[in-house]
């Protein structure tokens, strides 16, 4: 077995259990070890370096795309120019006037515009999802229609009990389903964590 693999596994095991014990201790006896906060801060520092590597990855991918002269290379050129331009203009730091201008007048409006597309996409996705092809999709459509009509003022004229029925769907079966999913997700998350702590999963080794 490689020495690097053993070291990585031991470090993961020890750190994992220290953080776990620290979390448990915080609940019962307050902050005893104080080590989990420290390790999370270290992780933040490592993430910062990872961003630099991500920057290199973006550069490499798009420069090679430009070289290969694949279709739509113009987008790669625009991306590289924008990235390097932002880097140069942002040399003064994130609070500098140039950086603030880029964030407030370019990045944020673009993100807001893109987010607005969601409304359109929800409509087209709903249109496709509302095609009944089996029993499951039938119930999906039925409940979606009840909730939709229950939200509208028109619904009460169709059936006076509709808003109440809509509330029941949202608070009883939907909530029960969500709680079931969350319980499963919590158990799945714990199992994933334990597999790493026990060395069954070792995504960090070579």
């Amino acid at each position: 077995m490689k020495i690097g693999r053993v070291t990585a596994t031991v470090v993961a095991f020890v750190t994992g259990f220290l953080v776990l014990l620290d979390m448990a201790a915080q609940q019962s006896w307050g902050d005893i070890f104080g080590i989990s906060g420290l390790l999370v801060r270290w992780a933040t520092i490592i993430t910062t370096f990872a961003v630099l590597l991500g920057f290199v990855n973006v550069m490499t991918v798009h420069v090679s795309r430009l070289r290969s002269r694949k279709p739509c290379t113009i987008y790669s050129a625009v991306l590289l120019i924008s990235m390097l331009g932002t880097l140069l203009l942002g040399i003064g730091g994130p609070t500098s006037t140039n950086s603030q201008f880029i964030f407030n007048f370019i990045l944020q409006p673009l993100e807001a515009t893109f987010s607005a597309l969601l409304a359109l996409f929800i409509a087209t996705a709903a249109f496709r999802a509302f095609r009944i092809h089996d029993l499951e999709s039938f119930f999906f459509v039925l409940f979606a229609l009840i909730v939709l009509l229950g939200q509208l003022p028109l619904g009460i004229y169709l059936w006076s009990e509709l808003p109440m029925f809509k509330d029941w769907i949202l608070t009883v079966p939907t909530m029960a389903g969500i709680r079931g999913i969350l319980l499963g997700v919590a158990l799945g998350t714990i199992a994933s964590g334990l597999r790493i702590l026990l060395g069954i999963d070792r995504p960090y080794t070579d």
Partner: peptide, 18 residues
Amino acid sequence: ANPMVMLYAQNTLQVAHA
């Protein structure tokens, strides 16, 4: 979207093609 995940993904591919 996360650069740390990128590093793990690179490691996964390198292990598979060791």
